[in-house]
């Protein structure tokens, strides 16, 4: 996983609540067995007309957002299906950070496994960012070490993130590698558990 320490980038806005993972990556693209190449299908039904042409009314098709790497969104972003393909699509498209007042649980977890940083800010801070992002070329700097988001023009917000997830993202650590360091504890648990709760192991 690519570490994320500090990121500076162009902000794109998606002003909708409850954006579900079916929208982020529609099901027809879930049949692939690879992990890469999902960016071209991101927000497919919103991004393209039924004829397959880019829909000029969809925000990510506006030329001003070309190259955006920070997505500003609304409440309950990533709700619905557990499909990690949604995170793969966002990341492959070029996003490294998503800012919203709240995220759906599974999506939030999936982000951290792929080096995509979900940042929860207060509704007021997100509203303020939406106002500021109306300005073309609006950019933000995210510092994971300091846990701050700032625009260099007076907006500074601090965000909370689980310290261990933060550490793994800063160092680009592989979760499984971390877990396997606990092999002795896992093996001991299995031994004790089997003795007490026969029924668990079918």
């Amino acid at each position: 996983m690519e570490p994320l320490i500090r990121h500076e980038g162009l902000v794109a806005v998606l002003d909708r609540v409850n954006v579900d993972t079916d929208q982020i990556i529609p099901k027809q693209f879930l049949k692939r067995v690879a992990r890469s190449g999902f960016g071209q299908f991101l927000f497919y039904d919103w991004r393209y007309t039924p004829e397959g042409e880019p829909d000029p009314s969809f925000v990510l098709n506006h030329p001003r957002y070309a190259g955006a790497s920070i997505l500003l969104a609304r409440d309950n972003f990533g709700c619905g299906s557990s499909r990690e393909h949604a995170v793969w699509a966002l990341e492959d498209y070029g996003f490294r950070v998503i800012i919203a007042p709240s995220f759906a649980d599974i999506f939030y977890n999936n982000c951290f496994k792929n080096g995509l940083l979900p940042i929860t800010l207060s509704p007021d801070e997100v509203d303020e960012l939406f106002r500021r992002a109306a300005r073309e070329g609006y950019r933000l700097t995210v510092d994971l070490r300091e846990q701050t988001v700032e625009d260099g023009d007076g907006f500074v917000a601090r965000f909370e993130v689980d310290p261990e997830r933060r550490m793994r993202l800063l160092e680009g650590l592989d979760d499984i590698g971390v877990t396997l360091q606990h092999e002795a504890a896992i093996a001991a648990y299995e031994r004790d558990r089997k003795a007490v709760y026969q029924n668990v192991f079918r």
Binding site: R35, S82, R83, E84, H85, V87, I106, N109, N110, K113, N114, D162, E164, D175, I176, T179, L180, H182, I186, E190
Partner: peptide, 21 residues
Amino acid sequence: AFGIGTSEVEHVLATQCLWQT
């Protein structure tokens, strides 16, 4: 019982465990 992403599927396959808050 809860749903997980594919990275977590891999994690459970490899370790039979899962990190959770």
